[in-house]
Nucleic acid binder design. Structure first.
Lengths: 326, 326
DNA sequence: CTGAAAGCGCTTACAG
DNA sequence: CTGAAAGCGCTTACAG
């Protein structure tokens, strides 16, 4: 190792490079090594270091829906909380799919410093069995597997039901996401329950599912609308805003007036929901905070600190826009 | 190594695990080792392997604007082309910023198998000096640094200028992105040139820049519009659709009728541009193909194959929607 | 076709 | 406070 040309052993260089000099290296040598490191532009080799330490500086983020713009904000939050000493590795798979067991093994063989898993299902966590620190995001009902940062989507869903009931709707439909992640199940269940309690009827044949994609959602809505219209449906709630954009788009094509003939609402409150015309009423989810909190929790774990038990739950809130009120 | 319990040496196991058995391991032993690997669920340790080989299985993707939904598609394409044997590491930084030299060093110390750099500037490439295979995406004018996959944004920009000229516009404005990436410079230059050639005037004080963010773009437009209106501006072209959404949003607030009073257009053709009301006229950029082609090129490079010289340029095309035609 | 051995670049007890 | 040495889990000439 060239940096040993500071006139010391590699052990001393390692100590200095890792900031473990407290009472173990003379000030004189610390300075000498620092100079040498600066002059030579030396950077500790990540691979060698990882092998010796048994753990790398990589944090793996596993998420089933990377293409959702919601996710870009989550990543932003994570990055901010993690800081520059950890490298974010994105485990990208087919839209809506979780990595296979074999993918996970390969990933784990990188000896990650920590794992962040977004919107997982129990099966995946079951065969993950991570030896690394692990934090879950948006994983309602799975807190027993690992520390979690959750969104109180149920509260937002209920607010949405109440809002629609107050506007006089009595027949509604629901466009769900096909991915079997729990957050979507919670969104739907909470909405349906509160809707029923407030006199809004959503019969099972008025619940359809599509992938999180504007075009697919539009097509599905196009196919379902005639029947719904006959049944007197005046409101459609979508599992994500992306689904909502599809409905909005198809409604325009079909000449359905929003919100007069049909009210539309979604979840996520993506930036574009404020921009569409009419704006899309949506349950706001604090994406950046979600990533940030999860990053913070994981960081504490990786640094060997303790976490306050009980996990973190972030509030959601209804943002009312033109798609549900004139 | 437990897998050595197949009754062979670790060397033999390594050969089998890496598929380098051709004429070097007896069929008998290959089978025995395969069984042992399967039974024990053995996976080659990525770190140990990387250290011995001198290179990891990690492909680093450096991009200045990860939160742009455009980017999700690029990632999708890259993942598809790379396949499961490479792990995608995302280098995430402040929006619009490139990693510092120190970040890059840290990243390179992971010994990446390859590097993908999106929308770089010359300075960054200058001090990158990557020893790993490198492919650039969306890097007009930087082909001398590395093999590149480019988008012919100039062609789309000219089509847009022609479209606006044909609609009779003679006074226009331009909302640019502040990031100094070349693609934005090319978009603007090509548009301005063709606009001038077709009798559309865009004086320098009618060119403003903001970050790629709906809210910021909206505010900037709000500040500039009164002046522009006085000058007779009837069309605004935006460097990205995201800027366009901001303009659309503010225009609605300000009661400016689109497209009657003001035509608006952007670049990227994000999914939401088809959904907004009116739909946003936009220069379509083939994001998935961009990622795919770049992934393919890099893969060839990493496998030691040759690339056809000259790089790849992907076509762009104008998608006309309601924001520029009634 | 096979295995013993060196080496990849670090870190960390350990002895001094 | 310091350095020699072992070891992290692999791969790859090399000798047989």
């Amino acid at each position: 190792m060239v940096a040993a040309r500071a006139g010391v052993s590699t052990a001393t260089v390692s100590l200095v490079a890792n900031g473990k000099t407290a009472g173990r290296v003379s000030e004189d040598n610390v300075a000498r090594v620092r100079d040498a490191i600066a002059e030579l532009g030396y950077v500790v080799d990540g691979i060698g270091s990882s092998l010796a330490k048994g753990v790398s500086s990589i944090v793996i983020l596993v998420a089933p829906d990377i293409s959702n713009p919601f996710f870009a904000k989550v990543i932003d939050g994570v990055r901010e909380a993690l800081g520059p000493q950890y490298q974010l590795l994105l485990s990208v798979t087919e839209a809506g799919e979780f990595p296979q067991a074999s993918d996970v093994r390969r990933l784990m063989s990188l000896r990650p410093a920590g794992l962040l898993v977004d919107a997982p299902n129990a099966d995946f966590l079951e065969d993950l069995a991570s030896p690394s620190p692990l934090v879950l995001l948006d994983a309602p009902g799975l807190e027993s597997y690992a520390p979690s940062v959750n969104l109180d989507v149920a509260s937002g869903a209920r607010q949405l039901a109440a809002h629609l009931a107050a506007a006089g709707h009595t027949e509604a439909a629901y466009v769900d996401s096909v991915t079997g992640t729990d957050t979507f199940a919670v969104r739907r269940a909470a909405f349906l329950e509160e809707a029923a309690a407030r006199g809004i009827s959503v019969s099972p044949d008025r619940i359809i599912s599509t992938t999180i994609d504007v075009g697919t959602a539009a097509a599905a809505f196009a196919a379902a609308w005639p029947e719904w219209q006959r049944a007197g449906v005046t409101a459609v709630v979508c599992g994500t805003d992306t689904h909502g954009y599809g409905v909005l788009q198809e409604a325009r094509v079909a000449g359905v007036r929003i919100p007069e003939e049909l009210a539309v609402a979604g979840f996520d409150d993506l930036p574009y929901s404020a921009t569409s015309n009419p704006g899309l009423t949506s349950v706001h989810l604090p994406a950046t905070s979600l990533g940030q909190k999860a990053g913070e929790q994981l960081r504490r774990l990786m640094e060997g600190k303790f976490l306050k038990p009980g996990g973190v739950t972030l509030e959601t809130s209804l943002v009312v826009r033109g798609s549900t009120t004139a």
